[in-house]
Nucleic acid binder design. Structure first.
Lengths: 122, 122
DNA sequence: GTAAACGTTGACGCCTGTGTCAAGGTCAAG
DNA sequence: CTTGACCTTGACACAGGCGTCAACGTTTAC
């Protein structure tokens, strides 16, 4: 299928699809006219990328999942590298949460000091 | 004092000081040679900005605090506008935390599915 | 044949605070 | 007078994923 159809079926803009390809996540055969020609499997592949981006992964972090799918696995997360990324991501998220909680406490403290009457649930 | 001294005393690069000025947060008289000439109070002012940036405020959000200090208040947070920003920031942070917690749960669920043996404290 | 729809690559913009380089003015010390 | 430290403005670069426009080739339908 051509890029327009893939875009429509995945709900992803053609711009994004080309961007993914540019970063080596997506590959396409080329017709004699230069048009990209995608396989059926690419629909799932793009969906995997989108799902991960949605969760907060960077494009680079989706690479192991894509590679995993390409190797024929039923799920992008079925490979060791993917699991590692999952675990790393969990650690990162936990760290971000800690930072935010610290910030929240800091802001709440400042607010309490500036405005003793202001209640802050915490 | 000149910009170099202010930079040294606040631990902020001259680049940043000029940037703050460019955005109307910092003002300086100019000597006959065109050099910026800062007042003693600007040290505290810059410190206030840095403290807020550190906590995660954007430069724009520090404006009410700066204005508040300029009006002669002992603290940048002593004004109604500043308190509003504090409260808005708290709400934003809480929202971000919620997003991160949701993401964490999502990632943990995916990980558990991909790797049943992997334990995830939650 | 021609217009419309779709494809191609390339490149700029965004957002935010800051690093960094350029090309030049100023001033104190030797 | 020269060196070097310090100042000035201006402008490019980054990170990340994508919108969007340009300029141009292809296919499709009439």
């Amino acid at each position: 299928m051509r890029i327009g159809e893939l875009a429509e079926r995945t709900g992803v803009s053609t711009r994004s699809l080309r961007y993914y390809e540019q970063h080596g996540l997506l590959r396409a055969r080329r017709g004699s006219n230069g048009y990209r020609d995608y396989a059926e499997d690419d629909v799932r592949l793009v969906s995997e990328i989108r799902a991960l981006l949605q969760i907060g992964f960077t494009l680079e972090e989706t690479r192991p999942f894509v590679d995993c799918l390409r190797r024929g696995n039923s799920t992008g997360g079925s490979c060791a590298e993917s699991v590692e990324v999952y675990e790393r991501k969990l650690t990162e998220i936990d760290q971000e949460i800690r930072v935010l909680l610290a910030r929240r406490a800091e802001v709440a403290a400042q607010l309490a000091q500036s405005c003793p009457g202001c209640f802050v649930r915490g």
